[in-house]
């Protein structure tokens, strides 16, 4: 089950490192005010703006749109798309669809975990990479595949994946 225990998670709802500019939400609130079935699009819109959904945003949306805070939080934790903490500059999506699985996608995640020293779903200390396992990216004939930004890398091995990450890291430093 995807739902995480709320009692543990709530205090972790990030007090955002920088102050969240809640006025950015105004157009969103205006667009959805008074409509029905808006919970998911509103949260998607908020995540689009901030990259994740900060605590303050939940509270403001709940107040302005007349949605129960627990409902918003319930929906945000049900769906895989929503993030409650900031992500790295680059998100590495390693495909774990069936085709990639039978072509050893596991090795790629393991190699990246080891090289980046992060667990699956976490962000590196320097805030550069977030490592994610995703279900099918839909380019099964290129399996195994990972995607960073808009770039897709196919027919990978663990070593190649690590090499690509190292190159990106180097590029970022210069």
């Amino acid at each position: 089950m995807r739902v995480k225990r709320i009692s543990k998670k709530i205090p972790e709802l990030p007090e955002s490192p920088e102050k969240v500019d809640l006025s950015l939400l105004d157009p969103l609130i205006e667009k959805f005010s008074g409509k029905k079935g808006i919970t998911i699009p509103v949260l998607q819109g908020a995540q689009e703006i901030f990259g994740f959904i900060p605590r303050e945003v939940f509270i403001r949306l709940s107040e302005e749109l007349n949605l129960e805070l627990n409902e918003l939080y319930g929906v945000a934790t049900f769906y895989a798309q929503f993030r409650l903490s900031p992500v790295g500059k680059m998100i590495i999506k390693v495909c774990h669809g069936t085709a990639c699985h039978v072509q050893n996608a596991g090795t790629i995640t393991e190699s990246l975990q080891e090289s980046l020293k992060v667990e699956d779903g976490c962000t590196t200390e320097d805030g550069l990479f977030t490592l994610e396992s995703v279900a099918c990216l839909g380019c099964c004939s290129l399996a195994p595949v990972m995607m960073i930004g808009d770039e897709t890398y196919g027919k990978l091995t663990g070593n190649e994946a690590v090499k690509i990450i190292k190159e990106l890291k180097l590029k970022e430093k210069n």
Binding site: K36, I40, V75, Y79, Q81
Partner: peptide, 25 residues
Amino acid sequence: VKEGAGAFVCGEETALIASIEGERG
């Protein structure tokens, strides 16, 4: 068009309807 938010169970028709209505699928 309604964008799904990443839940396999929403392929089931009643869950999909719940999701369109803005609830957990």
